[in-house]
Design a protein around this nucleic acid. Sequence first.
DNA 1: CTCATTGCAAATGATTTGCAAGAAA
DNA 2: TTTCTTGCAAATCATTTGCAATGAG
Lengths: 150, 150
Amino acid sequence: MLYSVIVAVTKESLIMKEIRRNTKQQQIILEELRKLTSHPSASDLYQIVRKRVSRISLGTVYRNLQLLSKNGTIRKLDMAGREARFDGRPDSHYHIFCSKCGKIGDLNESPIVITGSVLKEADGWKILKHRIDFIGVCPECWNSFDTNNV
Amino acid sequence: MLYSVIVAVTKESLIMKEIRRNTKQQQIILEELRKLTSHPSASDLYQIVRKRVSRISLGTVYRNLQLLSKNGTIRKLDMAGREARFDGRPDSHYHIFCSKCGKIGDLNESPIVITGSVLKEADGWKILKHRIDFIGVCPECWNSFDTNNV
DNA sequence: CTCATTGCAAATGATTTGCAAGAAA
DNA sequence: TTTCTTGCAAATCATTTGCAATGAG
């Protein structure tokens, strides 16, 4: 039997949070993701987790990352380019993408302050939430300009 | 010979804007994209452009969309995992994604006011720009809740 | 026991690429 | 004429899925 808990009821639908079986694979995937601040892709994580669960398959990594991000335990980062990247940090924070090397960083200071009335509606759309990302140059890439370029 | 124009010189690199051959294919792809507010995918656009250039290939559509978005003529909207969508509107504006049907809308009113000092640097990163997207429910989906659901 | 989850491999979907022929400049 | 661009098909890359075997509860 599949147990479920109702987390919230909206006009749109019931949002369920599934309580799943606690597998060694899922536990280790989450554990390894939480050790990293590098926002790894599914296959990065596969390579890492493989060292602890040698027979794990890439499909299992994908399945678990999907489930974990659906229930809000981890975050899937969009706009990461080709492959999705994952963030094990549960707290809300901004991300910055290095336009030179593609690295993704967590921003601890808030570079933008949002004030003013945040509308609930615009052009007929109901606004549920918003997302802010930054694009910039990481410290390493910036330093290499200084030393190697003009 | 490939002509190039230097658009800007940054510490990082020369940013070139290529002046390319003016092909019928590119012209029509851009024309059709600009007729739409639906933010079509490459293959949506391929189906449309096909009606005017019957022998065009999907590869050509991809190649031109890539070139046009690289030089800033159009905008590529990417959400990790899903297929990229394109926006022919050249002016800066926000996008909102319908969490029910996936539709993408342009926001004409600014739902968020950004104030406060916008930092140039955070956690050692140089910030070049930022991006804000909204997630919500489009007018059509919202109306169908009212009439079809409790 | 049950049935969700796994490993494996094959399937899918989106995007890219090699190459010879075609078309701008 | 030169060489960028196209059409076509095959290749690649990320992700998903079917299925029989496995393992958590």
